[in-house]
């Protein structure tokens, strides 16, 4: 995992997840594939700009009304961005399936996003973090543990001198 840290508002992330869940569920209940497409596009834009897709809902509505308070701390934003991007891809795929008439596949993909977002929002389980961790275990390039200080990735660590007795 990357060592880059930055202030991450977890309340904004949670609000984003809740909106995604609500809109995706509404798309299913009212059979509106266009709504699923809309959510997928917003998530894609959010991933591209490195922000929660529905940040405006949080900053312009939820926070001013006092319904949710900021929860900011130093965190690695990459797993969260990965999770949103993954969700966007799956939702866009769901939309494509729905418009192509593959309703079972389309709704199944949409529900995958709802379940993963719900796990994150209500159980604290981050799917992006899960994938990051599993890829690190497999030794995938870019996901493995950071090399020791002063070591260029891929190179052997410098030999250290024997400690004095």
């Amino acid at each position: 995992m990357s060592a880059s840290l930055g202030p991450v508002d977890h309340a904004a992330l949670k609000a984003n997840q809740l909106v995604i869940i609500a809109l995706s569920a509404a798309a299913f209940i009212f059979d509106v594939p266009l709504l699923a497409l809309f959510v997928g596009i917003v998530m894609s834009l959010g991933t591209f700009f490195g922000k929660p897709g529905f940040l405006k809902v949080y900053s312009s509505i939820l926070r001013p009304l006092g319904l949710i308070r900021p929860d900011i701390f130093q965190d690695n934003p990459e797993p969260h961005r990965f999770a949103q991007g993954f969700g966007a891809v799956v939702l866009l795929g769901a939309s494509a399936a729905l418009f192509a008439g593959l309703h079972a596949l389309g709704w199944a993909l949409l529900w995958l996003v709802i379940v993963l977002a719900s796990l994150n929002a209500f159980a604290g389980f981050c799917a992006g973090c899960f994938v990051y961790y599993q890829l690190a275990r497999l030794g995938a390039p870019g996901f493995a543990k950071r090399p020791p200080e002063g070591t260029f990735p891929g190179f052997k660590p410098k030999a250290h001198h024997e400690a004095d007795a």
């Binding site: 701390f73 130093q74 690695n76 961790y133």
Partner: peptide
Amino acid sequence: GSTACAACVHV
């Protein structure tokens, strides 16, 4: 946790 997991270390 892991030293490479920011949420683990900082939260």
